[in-house]
Design a protein around this nucleic acid. Structure first.
Lengths: 147, 147
DNA sequence: ATGGCTGCAAACACTTTGCATCGGC
DNA sequence: GCCGATGCAAAGTGTTTGCAGCCAT
């Protein structure tokens, strides 16, 4: 769905003196195609295409890609990490009702907030929690409540 | 330093049918006076004033206070949770060099981003990572690098 | 007095690490 | 062929839970 160039990753790997392996490319592809997954979900998808791949490799690769600046780690209201291809700034709309996560283009004003405070901004991440249009109607109807 | 009224908490506890205990008031005070601490640090401070208090109680209380909407949980770039008295919206400036966390007043524009997308906004949290004025000078001088 | 709250320790979930093998360069 | 990368399982963290006693209500 999302046309992410794997060459980008190879270049970064080479630049960092790391090796290009099938596992790394597979994981990168999965993250590119499915933003916001957690390590476990990524692993499950990976196993479908390579039954041998281990969860440790997922974590090691994720951590490497994060170090290279290729993927971002976010908590997204959960108690564990979620991963997605790096975008300098982003806005996540997290619905407390259905759990849906929508992305919205980040206004330049975000990083300006940091810059005005004398920061050399690396990244600006805005997480907005609330209820999406669908869920705001059927509040208190049972299913998932507030938490 | 920060004059937070403990009565607020008592009212909330009563409203929720929960009991007021010394432990809960102590923990609430600590969070009010020291924003951005993690559970462990909160526990250490608590032990100074009540050597018997257990880490489990810290977690249980934190979770209760979060449920009551009195405290917020944030990740702040670390791999575990940090707690602070609830403010509807906030902006955290997280320095990747020295780890300092500065707060900046949140512009109304933040929640507007969610509202424009049809969200009933619960909370908007902006985390900006980068290097503060002090650290942006002495980059690559060793100490802590990028991560 | 009664049932929620606490401390303690064991249980958990997520993530990291040690080691032998495998495979990119 | 060398050394980094992988898979497996064991070890680590941060956080949660079961249980008996304690204390607000």
């Amino acid at each position: 769905m999302k046309p992410v160039d794997p060459k980008t990753m190879r270049d970064h790997l080479r630049a960092a003196g790391k090796r290009r392996t099938a596992e790394r490319e597979l994981l990168f592809e999965i993250i590119a195609e499915h933003p916001h997954l957690d390590a476990n979900a990524i692993h499950q998808l990976a196993v479908e295409r390579n039954p041998k791949i281990g969860l440790a490799t997922v974590y090691r690769t994720l951590s490497l890609l994060a170090e290279l600046g290729l993927v971002d780690v976010a908590t997204l209201g959960e108690d564990h990490s979620h991963y997605e291809i790096r975008q300098d700034d982003h806005v996540h709309l997290i619905c407390l009702g259905c759990g849906e996560i929508r992305e919205v283009p980040p206004p330049a004003a975000l990083r300006k907030l940091g810059e005005d405070a004398g920061f050399e901004v690396h990244e600006a991440q805005l997480e907005i929690t609330g209820y999406c249009e669908t869920c705001r109607g059927r509040r208190s109807s049972g299913s998932r409540g507030d938490r």
